[in-house]
Design a protein around this nucleic acid. Structure first.
Length: 481
RNA sequence: GCCGGUGUAGUUCAAUGGUAGAACGAAGGACUCAUAAGCCUUAAACAGUGGUCCGAUUCCACUCACCGGCACCA
């Protein structure tokens, strides 16, 4: 028996054809908050992030930029890595699918570990758009042409690829989802997945010809003419990062014998995580993830962020102007964890001014000023608060927004308490009573800083440090005009 | 087209078979420890129609509006 529960959590690995946008930041922050909460509960957490370097879109973007693919991918992967750092994301590891040996070895092992009858060669025929370098389903075509490359004739191409026999796993996957062995959050995504399964599952291709992949990616073991296609490759990062290839202790600890295995993903990749990925794992005799948490998107002015609309928000700009803690707070409390949330810069500013400048920042200033002036030493016997139901239950249901809202309610309560108890007046007539009130306020502030640990780790630490030093800190969130 | 969801104060969201809560915004007030912050008070809403029920915002049906999914999109 291990002394601590283990908790594995991952972000999806984005493809790196461009700089990260605010949607990526949302996923990183959500996963980080959960990871930090679990650490607060003293669980043994392994938090993984990384990049999907091998996607064909990367190749295309690199060629469009006139750069070698490896250089282009390295540069963008670094942008993602630095965004994680700038948002103070506490990932324990960062895997890259092109440069990490453990990944390449792991993918090969996973391919070879799938049941022989589940991987087979089949001719695939489809309409190929040379603009996108992708097969298009007839459904999305606009008068027989690719909607993104109108006027360009589609080619009907036939190619032989490896396929995965998804149809073999229909019943098993349905069963684990219904039973909750594989939990899908929220319910609406679970229903979508089940509806999809009900409609019947077709086998999916897991390789591309080497030419079409432009020689980029991981070759199919034993068949150099084919490259492993993105899904089989990318999804496997969750276990290859843990050392699946050499069957490491980490892999055993966090995955095969782990207590919880959670993937945080966007709604666009639901199917791949709740159907394809479990099927591959079942075929290879590997344990399934226990939870898939599916978030919505950040929209800008009601529209999806896209380069063509020109409304892409670079999280780095927001971080530069407002600081990482503000971005974290906004994404945590003012986006719905499951649904799409619209962002306007006005709303962002209002949250900064209201919650952080006038709310948290001001509360810290008023309490610590009182403490610094009237208390001769720092407050003794500071203890962690008992976590309230709103906090723990909120986390259990992944309503990060509601948990954060609860914390900010506590902040308002303390503000109200100061006004009612008037320590600044009491201390003049009855110094002992005044000091008692002030040290209680400091204890309340300490509790708040504790509750903030998952959300705003830096701010939490600054508050704690100020309490220990018994000194009013610099303005945590300066007013902006 | 098929399947699923949503429609609550100006805005973003919550709850509930029996006085509908909060935040932001708005109006007023008392205070001064604080980042001209904070506190207190007030105004303000159940998409529409019909049904079940003693009673519906809550359950059901329909209408309207919006959103999501419907296979190779991290």
């Amino acid at each position: 028996m291990r002394e601590k529960k283990t908790f594995f959590i991952s972000t999806s690995i984005p493809y790196v054809n461009a700089r990260p946008h605010l949607g990526h930041a949302l996923e990183f922050v959500q996963a980080d908050i959960i990871a930090r909460y679990k650490r607060l509960l003293n669980e043994d957490v392994f938090f993984l992030s990384g990049t999907d370097d091998n996607a064909l879109k990367n190749v295309r973007a690199a060629e469009a930029a006139g750069e070698p693919v490896a250089d282009y991918v390295n540069k963008n992967a670094e942008n993602f890595r630095s965004l994680l750092r700038d948002l103070t994301i506490s990932n324990d590891d960062f895997i890259r699918t092109s440069t990490d040996r453990r990944h390449i070895a792991g993918v090969e092992k996973l391919w070879n570990s799938c049941k022989k009858e589940d991987i087979y060669k089949k001719k695939y025929k489809g309409f190929y758009c040379v603009g996108c370098e992708e097969f298009k389903t007839e459904k999305i075509l606009v008068s027989g042409e690719c909607p993104e490359h109108l006027g360009v004739k589609l080619e009907e191409i036939e190619e032989e690829n490896y396929f995965f026999k998804l149809s073999n796993y229909k019943d098993q996957i349905e069963k684990v989802i219904v039973s909750g062995e594989l939990q899908i959050i929220p319910e609406i995504r679970k229903n979508e997945t089940l509806a999809f399964i009900k409609g019947g599952l077709e086998d999916f291709s897991i390789s591309r010809s080497k030419e079409r992949a432009h020689g980029w990616g991981i070759p199919v073991p034993g068949d150099e003419s084919q490259m492993i296609y993105v899904w089989f490759d990318a999804l496997s990062n969750y276990i290859t990062a843990l050392g699946y290839a050499e069957n490491s202790e980490k892999f055993t600890n966090y995955w095969q014998e782990g207590d919880e295995r959670v993937h945080v993903i966007g709604k666009g990749v639901n199917r791949f995580h709740t159907i394809y990925w479990p099927a591959i794992l079942l075929s290879a005799g590997i344990r399934l993830p226990s939870k898939v948490f599916i978030h919505g998107y950040v929209t800008i002015g009601g529209e999806k962020m896209s380069k063509s609309i020109g409304n892409v928000v670079d999280p780095n700009d927001l971080i530069k102007e407002y600081g990482p803690e503000t971005v974290r707070h906004f994404l945590a409390q003012h986006t719905h964890p499951f649904n799409d949330t619209d962002l306007t810069i006005g709303r962002f500013r209002a949250v900064y001014g209201g919650d952080l400048v006038d709310g948290l920042g001001n509360l810290v200033a008023r309490i610590m000023q009182l403490a610094q002036t009237h208390l001769s030493t720092k407050v003794q016997d500071l203890t962690a608060p008992e976590l309230q139901k709103e906090y723990t239950e909120g986390f259990k249901s992944y309503r990060i927004d509601q948990v954060s809202d609860h914390v900010f309610r506590e902040i308002r309560k303390v503000d109200s308490e100061i006004d009612h108890k008037k320590p600044f007046s009491v201390v003049k007539d009855d110094p002992e009573e005044g000091k008692r009130i002030i040290s209680d306020l400091v204890k309340n502030l300490y509790h708040i800083s504790y509750l903030l640990v998952p959300f705003m780790p830096e701010t939490s630490k600054k508050i704690t440090d100020a309490i220990i030093a018994n000194k009013k800190p610099e303005n945590l969130f300066p007013r902006k005009d």
